[in-house]
């Protein structure tokens, strides 16, 4: 059995940075799509196929940053009865069985409803290595972000091509683990900008931080990954993976095979 590279006593923020010593591949999936038992299998497969960090989405009825593919994935997850309590139960069962660290990513309201303190204690207990809340800018709940940090749950912040100098400086300083660079203006699953634009953008972000940079939104396969990977420390793939999950949801074996093929295919060119 593989031991997680982030053991209990390690500092998760430092551990996350270690992940980016080489180019990191970071798949995103929605917990509970098609159901939580399958999510567990999918996570194990992602880990075996070369994922360096796994983002696990908490489904929400009304996500603002998701395109149709991930929205529908969230709907399927909610339909299968997924909630935070059950997600933590699944993660509990995964402890010690995978090598790649995992993050929780989701809208603020389900976390608020679950209870912020309870969320922190359950995430800590189930081995979560960091948290991304795309609709919670730092200033809107500084106390919660500080509590996350104090409890070894580094909050990961997003920056975008229209982030002002002030915002880049803020997240460059208070951010932890890595910075999630949204590659373009738009929601998930949109076309990405040109290689040149992305390069200029990432150079700009680097001026404000020493944190590793991961690029997400619009990377749908090996070709796009290849184009951008030399400019970043990691790439995030969500929509393209979720399309595969939707396509093969009925056939577990085929699904896991397809995921393994897709992930190792991208890993190869990195």
């Amino acid at each position: 059995m593989n031991k997680s590279i982030l053991s209990e006593r390690t500092n998760n923020a430092e551990g996350l940075k270690m992940v980016f010593k080489k180019k990191a591949l970071m798949p995103y999936i929605t917990a509970g799509d098609p159901d939580l038992a399958m999510t567990e299998e999918i996570i194990l497969t992602l880990d075996k196929s070369g994922a360096d960090l796994i983002e696990i989405g908490i489904p929400f009825s009304d996500p603002l940053l998701d395109g149709p593919v991930i929205q529908e994935s969230g709907q399927r997850a909610l339909h299968s009865g997924t909630n935070l309590k059950k997600i933590f139960e699944m993660l509990e069962g995964l402890r010690g069985r995978i090598r790649a660290p995992y993050l929780l990513m989701g809208s603020y309201n389900p976390i608020l409803s679950y209870g912020k303190d309870k969320f922190i204690s359950d995430a800590g207990r189930t081995g979560v290595s960091g948290v991304i809340i795309p609709d919670l800018p730092y200033e809107q709940d500084i106390e919660f972000y500080q509590d996350l940090k104090k409890n070894n749950l580094p909050p990961i912040f997003m920056v975008t091509p229209v982030s002002t100098e002030k915002r880049l400086r803020l997240y460059g300083e208070i951010g932890s683990g890595f910075l999630y660079c949204v590659s373009l203006l738009g929601i998930t699953g949109t076309e990405q900008g040109s290689e040149e634009e992305i390069k200029t953008y990432l150079e700009r972000v680097r001026r404000y931080t020493d944190l590793p940079l991961a690029l997400g939104f619009g990377i749908n396969g090996p070709e796009k990954a290849k184009k951008v990977v030399e400019h970043v420390d990691g790439i995030i793939i969500g929509t393209a993976l979720i399309r595969i999950i939707k396509k093969y949801a009925e056939d577990k074996e085929l699904l896991l095979q397809a995921i393994a093929g897709f992930i190792s295919g991208i890993k190869e060119i990195m």
């Binding site: 603002l64 940053l65 603020y108 795309p134 609709d135 919670l136 800018p137 809107q140 912040f157 997003m158 920056v159 975008t160 229209v162 982030s163 002002t164 915002r167 949204v182 203006l185 738009g186």
Partner: peptide, 14 residues
């Protein structure tokens, strides 16, 4: 109240 939005909109709202 507040302003719970994706980072892309923070600058626009400011």
């Amino acid at each position: 109240g507040g302003s719970f939005v994706p980072e892309t909109l923070v600058a626009a709202l400011e």
